[in-house]
Design a protein around this nucleic acid. Structure first.
Length: 605
DNA sequence: CGGATTTGACCGGCGC
DNA sequence: GCGCCGGTCAAATCCG
């Protein structure tokens, strides 16, 4: 401050810029001052030249401005080069996807498992998990490709329309209908379907199926634990508080919120502080948005929607197994319809280069309990020392390359990451005090080892195209299985871009239940290489199915399951991983998310 | 003044 | 049937 007073008033702003440039975020904020300017300024400010006249200072300031302009030009050219590279990669990616689509046209053995009614009603029933574009816009292959190319084009043209059209959530054809799509849908002779998603279903499903699904749609929950001082976690959505209660197990009041983005939106959330750690905010989401979301809300919504889908997937899987008793059941025992699989998902957003960044590990050993009709996935974004200390897990053969480093634990689970977690986190486990819940959920795995991400998949109707059980997926039908995993990844990426984000190297480990297969994803440092996320790594642990499955990924243009089930994961969200780590290291999760969202909004992608 | 929040009442599910 | 409890409603209140 004292120094500032001694400086010429006219250049104070520039000095601020210089200060900021000393940080590590200059590129991120689009400000980059080179050392040359500093020397110029030091000359300008030098006390050894006390007799500098105003005109000289003005001249110096102009020269400085010129330098800044040059620098801006340089940055612009770099940016355009990056965009060019990105588009080039995107183009290549599209081509690969198209090839994959052709391959998909060939009959798959899995389809043999499809019940006839499901197959016949696939068009009507398939649910799409959409991020970026509503799947209803992508009804044909051609349309989808066109739209993708449009996206590419709009990126070139700096068209922001696409960004504004970002929509997210589990958009079921029955549930979701955006206004501007109405005319198109009508043109196509399709019934405009609105929330609640009941009427159309009645024509194509049995009452049992419908009841089951609707129950899950209503009841599936995603619990997010995050350290947050604010009364509520800023997740980008608009919420209206409609109640507050003090639950029995927790002296902290629980607040009830409704999504107010759309009057008919069924999404609710409960916010409560953790009784054991008041700094931890527990937010429980229920339901799926039936409206386009603000860009800033997409990441969380995507994560929660996908997680909800995952729950439903597990539930459907259980059902499936009842129909196919020969299939190995992931469920251990017990009356609760919990599922548990043993694959592992590892997300290393830090990579070897930066051990300080959080790492995420997910396991397919997640247990999704559907007893009491409140299956809950817990997304733990607080660091979990007890978990991160389990080097044995880290260094297990499942993750041979994982270094033993502190981690942030992100769990998609129906049970808390450790027994120390309050039972109220999860109504499922809470109500399992009779012994059913934990025993079933543990499935013989130590508690700290079992709370990881199982497959995420736009479920419900998607089961029509993925009828195979989890056991199937992790068994012989590895390709399909991994495609589900990638759905998980998209959710994880979404979640991570919200809460961790940033330059990262990703590692995705996936271990099948029966011998396993691995994924190895690298999130490139170079913003021009985000597509690498979706590409098979040549070093993908030698597991062929892992490689092929990358392109099966529905989030990669929804190629696998037709227009109805397309998942479009915006490139920009992938590119998010390229921002500077230092910024996020000092950010709260909410800040980080906002920061990333801004980056996204400014990326013109 | 309109929208958001607060807060006590009410309701339904569940266990005893 | 009764009480407990989680969840919701809606009138009152607050606030920008």
């Amino acid at each position: 401050m004292e120094e500032k007073k001694m400086k010429p008033a006219g250049v104070e702003d520039d000095d601020d810029v210089e200060s900021s440039s000393t940080g590590t975020n200059e590129e991120e904020h689009g400000v980059c001052i080179k050392p040359g300017q500093i020397s110029l300024k030091s000359l300008l400010y030098s006390e050894k030249l006390p007799a500098i006249k105003k005109a000289d200072r003005l001249e110096s300031a102009r020269a400085q401005m010129g330098l800044v302009r040059e620098e801006n030009q340089r940055l612009k050219s770099i940016l355009s080069q990056i965009v060019k590279d990105y588009q080039s990669l995107q183009h290549q990616f599209f081509e690969v996807v198209q090839e994959e689509e052709k391959a998909e046209m060939e009959p798959s053995p899995n389809k043999l498992l499809l019940p006839h009614n499901q197959e016949n009603n696939e068009e009507a029933e398939l649910l799409s998990l959409t991020l970026g574009l509503s799947s209803s816009q992508l009804r044909t292959e051609g349309e989808r490709r066109n739209t993708l190319m449009m996206q590419s084009e709009s990126a070139k043209n700096g068209n922001s329309d696409m960004k504004q059209e970002l929509s997210l959530g589990l958009y079921d054809g029955k549930i979701m209908s955006r206004d501007h799509e109405s005319s198109k849908d009508t043109k196509e002779g399709e019934i405009l379907q609105k929330w609640p998603p009941s009427k159309v279903l009645k024509t194509v499903r049995s009452d049992d199926e419908q009841a089951l699904e609707q129950t899950h749609l209503k009841k599936a929950r995603v619990c997010v634990r995050v350290r947050c001082d604010a009364s509520t976690m800023e997740d980008g959505c608009h919420w209206r508080k409609y109640g507050q209660k003090i639950a029995k197990a927790n002296p902290c009041p629980r607040s009830y919120y409704r999504c107010t983005v759309s009057p008919s939106c069924p999404v609710k959330k409960q916010v409560q502080r953790c009784v054991e750690d008041m700094s931890v905010l527990i937010t429980t989401y229920e339901g799926n948005h039936n409206h386009p979301l603000p860009v800033s809300a997409t990441a969380m919504a995507f994560a929660t929607s996908a997680a909800t889908s995952m729950i439903q997937s597990h539930s459907s899987t259980s059902q499936q197994q009842q129909q196919h008793p020969s299939l190995p059941s992931p469920t251990s025992s017990g009356p609760a319809s919990a599922t548990s699989t043993s694959g592992l998902y590892g997300l290393d957003f830090a990579g070897d280069r930066n051990p300080k960044l959080p790492r995420l590990y997910f396991s397919n050993s997640t247990s999704i309990s559907t007893c009491n009709s409140h299956p809950t996935i817990t997304l733990d974004l607080t660091s979990s020392p007890e978990f991160s200390n389990h080097d044995g897990y880290r260094s297990s053969s499942w993750f041979p390359s994982l270094p033993k480093l502190p981690s942030t634990f992100l769990s998609f689970s129906s049970s808390p990451p450790s027994s120390s977690l309050p039972s109220h986190l999860d109504t499922t486990t809470h109500k399992s005090s009779s012994g059913i819940g934990p025993r079933v959920l543990n499935h013989g795995v130590p508690p700290q080892h079992q709370l990881y991400l199982p497959q995420l998949w736009p479920v419900t109707n998607t089961q029509a195209s993925h009828p195979q059980s989890l056991a199937d997926k992790f068994g012989a039908e590895a390709t399909k299985a991994t495609s589900s995993n990638l759905s998980s990844q998209s959710a994880l990426v979404a979640a991570m871009t919200s809460f961790v984000g940033d330059r990262a190297t990703g590692f995705l480990g996936d271990k099948g239940k029966e011998g396993g297969f691995g994924l190895n994803l690298k999130f490139g440092d170079d913003p021009a290489t985000p597509i690498e996320l979706l590409r098979p790594s040549p070093q993908a642990d030698g597991i062929s199915c892992a490689s092929s499955s990358y392109m099966d990924n529905p989030m990669a243009l929804g190629s696998q399951h037709g227009p109805k089930s397309s998942i479009w994961f915006p490139h920009s969200s992938v590119a998010l991983s390229t921002s500077k780590e230092s910024a996020c290291a000092s950010m709260s999760p909410a800040e980080t998310k906002d920061h990333l969202i801004k980056f996204l909004a400014n990326s013109e992608i």
